[in-house]
Amino acid sequence: MALPDLSALAVPGAEIAVRVTPNARREALDVGEAGQPLRISVTVVPEDGRATQAARDLLAQAMGVAKTRLVLVRGAKSRDKLFRLD
């Protein structure tokens, strides 16, 4: 799977809005239009934060940063999430 290059977003303190689709057929990351949240599809089910963790891992990989640098600010139990890069 080819991920888009999101290294331009890798600025400390940057907040990235995402919309997560759990239990998808395949993992994908769609940039979409400017001003819209990134759309992340993950194959795991939304239990015990697994989908959030998978989305964070995929986003970190596309940004080229360590996954531990992405902190969930809001949306632990929602499809709409906000991550901050520390």
Rank of each mutant, 00 (worst) to 15 (best):
M1I: 07
M1L: 12
A2H: 09
A2M: 09
A2Q: 14
L3H: 01
L3C: 09
P4F: 01
D5L: 01
L6Y: 05
S7M: 00
A8N: 11
A8R: 11
L9N: 05
A10G: 02
V11P: 06
G13N: 04
G13T: 02
A14F: 02
I16E: 11
A17R: 14
A17C: 07
V18Y: 07
V18N: 04
V18E: 01
V18W: 05
V18F: 04
R19C: 04
T21W: 11
T21S: 13
T21P: 08
T21K: 12
P22R: 00
N23A: 15
A24S: 13
R25C: 10
R26D: 14
E27Y: 10
L29T: 09
L29I: 02
D30R: 15
D30F: 14
D30W: 12
G32L: 14
G32F: 10
G32C: 13
G32A: 15
E33Q: 13
A34R: 15
G35H: 15
G35C: 15
P37H: 11
P37T: 06
L38V: 04
L38D: 10
R39I: 03
R39D: 09
R39E: 14
I40M: 06
I40P: 12
V42C: 01
T43A: 09
T43S: 12
V44G: 07
V45K: 10
V45G: 07
P46V: 03
P46R: 04
D48H: 03
D48Q: 09
D48S: 05
G49Y: 11
R50V: 03
A51I: 00
A51R: 02
T52L: 12
T52R: 08
Q53E: 15
Q53N: 14
Q53I: 05
Q53T: 10
A54Q: 02
R56M: 13
R56D: 08
D57M: 06
L58N: 07
A60N: 01
A60G: 11
A60C: 04
Q61N: 06
Q61D: 10
Q61P: 00
M63S: 13
M63A: 08
G64C: 05
G64A: 07
G64F: 06
V65T: 06
K67H: 08
K67D: 14
K67L: 03
T68G: 06
T68V: 08
T68R: 07
V71Y: 00
V71D: 03
L72A: 01
L72C: 03
V73W: 00
V73P: 03
R74A: 10
R74H: 02
G75L: 05
A76Q: 05
A76V: 01
A76Y: 02
A76G: 06
K77A: 09
S78G: 03
S78L: 00
K81A: 13
L82A: 07
F83Q: 09
F83S: 07
F83L: 03
R84I: 14
R84C: 06
R84F: 12
